Every structure is written in C-alpha cells, then in structure tokens.
Simulated scan of single mutants.
Amino acid sequence: MTELSLLPAVRPRPSAPASAVAATSGAAFDEAVALTRALKLPHIRRAMTDIIPTAKAQRWDPAEVVRALLAEEAAGRAASNLRTRRQRASFPTGKTFHIWNEDAYSIPIPTQSALRTLEWIGRQENLCVVGPSGTGKSHFTEALGQAAVDAGMTVAWFTIEDLGGLVRRHRVDDSVTKAFARLTRTDLVIVDDIGLLPVSADAAEGFYRLVDAAYERKSLAVSSNLHPSGFDEIMPKTLATATVDRLLHHAHVVVTAGDSHRLSEAVNGNGVVALS
C-alpha cells in the first residue's frame, strides 16, 4: 500500500453551473488565495477554483468543504514527496516490479515475495544478490528500491565507484566520515554491479565506510557478480574481510543462476524492433 492510498478520498466534483462561478471571485476569495500562499498550501490553492463553486452549487456542509480542501493538499504533498524521493534515489533505469517477470528468473518465488514485503528494511537487515550477468540482479534490486520509495522510504543508489568519488570529494576538507554518516539517514542504500571491473583504492575505502556506517543502523542491498566471500579478489584482503564481516552479519544472500536474460532476448530477436 502506498502513502497515497492512505489519504482520504476526495469526493468527485462535477462541473459547477455558471451561477456558482462567482464564488471564485471577490475580496474573500482573493484573501483566501493570499492566505494559501502565505501558509504554503499550493494544492489547496489550485483546488479552490473547482471545489468552492461546486460546494456552493451543491450546498455542501462547511466541514465537507474543509475536508475536501485538506484532502487535496495532503494528496498533493504526498505526490510531491514521492517524486522528490524518487529523484533523490538516482535510480539508473526506472525498472519496477510492473515489468518484472517473477517466473523468468532463478530467484525462488517465495524469496521474492518475502523480500517484496520490505520487512527486512524495517529490521535493518541487508540483502546481497549475487550471480552471473543478465540474471536479474540489478532489475530486482532496483525494483525493491522503487517499491521502498512507493512505501514512503528514502533510498540512495550507487555504483561502487560512486562511493570512491564520494571519498575523494570529501577528503579535501576531511569530512569523509560525516559524509558517510549522512548516508545512514537513508532507509536503504543500494550498491550495484560490484565485481564487474577492478575496484580502485578509493572505491574500496568508500564501500567499507558505507558498510561500517550502516552496520545495524540501516539496510544495504548489494548486487554483485562475485559472492561476498570472494571480495578479497577485488579489494585488499584486510579491508575485504572487515567489510564482508559487517555486510553479511544480518544479511539475506540470494544467488541467481542461469543464462543471461539479455542474451536470450537478443538470440530470440526480442532485443530490438524488427526491421521492415
């Protein structure tokens, strides 16, 4: 259930007759508009020109008018907050569960269903999705992130090299620790595609700092071609050991398998629109 579905329903407003249009003019209406600006109520302001004439024409109870206007403001704010959280998450592709075929991938359906409840985020647990390229890791983790945003949570998406860039930017003024501490204000941090490329020293440090800062405080979701037990192949062994120890302590590990879904689509001619 999304936060929008929790809001009170706004009664449908049929078109008001011409005799009621006068309700949207005059000193009282102008003053009401000014008050919505002063109180920062933009959604009420937009709704007034429809609701007030309708209320007058249909002789609504005053309490119903207030309820309808407040419901418009609440719904508008919820939609605006949702857009802001989605933009701040910086998802790479916009993939959601609406285009996810749960039968097409190797992740057991009961596991998918349990993770989609998002209860593990509330318990500050981690998720590691590991397996070959094209087996649904990134799509599944992004779809979980999108679902978390829909549920009112905050999410941040990174590649491991993004974390290295964060380290470099904040090393200049010695604020690296503070920068990663701020990330723990986010309900879920997703780190995608670990293991595809060599990891720089800054990226390895950034990944460790993130895992350490989030440990038992916030949830991480990691997708990787390597099982975390093999992270010492791409990071210094001491750093990898400390990182994996914290990452896996409260983690669900999901291993994907099979052929690349992208390659399969390409071979079957489904990757492009056929040329005419």
Rank of each mutant, 00 (worst) to 15 (best):
208 Y>W: 12
145 G>P: 07
34 A>W: 15
194 I>K: 09
9 A>N: 09
180 F>R: 04
173 D>G: 02
14 P>W: 11
77 R>M: 10
198 P>D: 04
94 G>K: 12
101 N>Q: 12
1 M>N: 06
39 L>C: 10
5 S>Y: 11
106 S>H: 07
72 E>F: 14
59 R>F: 15
3 E>G: 04
16 A>R: 01
28 A>R: 10
63 A>K: 15
136 G>V: 02
88 R>H: 14
42 P>K: 05
170 H>E: 07
189 V>M: 05
97 F>S: 00
249 H>W: 11
134 G>N: 06
19 S>D: 09
259 D>Y: 13
238 T>L: 15
158 F>S: 01
109 I>K: 15
14 P>F: 12
92 P>C: 08
49 T>S: 09
224 S>D: 12
26 G>R: 08
31 E>I: 12
29 F>W: 07
131 G>H: 06
92 P>H: 06
28 A>W: 13
88 R>Y: 15
83 R>V: 06
207 F>K: 03
48 M>I: 02
131 G>W: 10
273 V>G: 11
3 E>M: 15
45 R>Q: 12
205 E>M: 13
144 L>Y: 10
123 R>W: 13
127 L>P: 00
55 A>M: 04
84 T>E: 14
94 G>E: 09
107 I>Y: 05
129 V>G: 04
194 I>E: 02
7 L>N: 00
225 N>L: 13
199 V>Y: 03
147 A>E: 12
60 W>I: 02
125 E>D: 10
11 R>Y: 06
146 Q>I: 13
274 A>D: 05
139 H>R: 06
88 R>W: 15
197 L>T: 07
110 P>W: 15
130 V>S: 10
176 V>L: 12
204 A>S: 10
98 H>N: 09
157 W>H: 03
4 L>Y: 08
61 D>W: 11
142 E>T: 07
21 V>M: 14
121 I>T: 04
128 C>E: 02
245 D>Q: 10
137 K>F: 08
251 A>Q: 06
21 V>P: 01
248 L>V: 10
74 A>W: 06
169 R>F: 14
225 N>H: 13
5 S>T: 04
82 L>E: 05
163 L>R: 04
200 S>V: 05
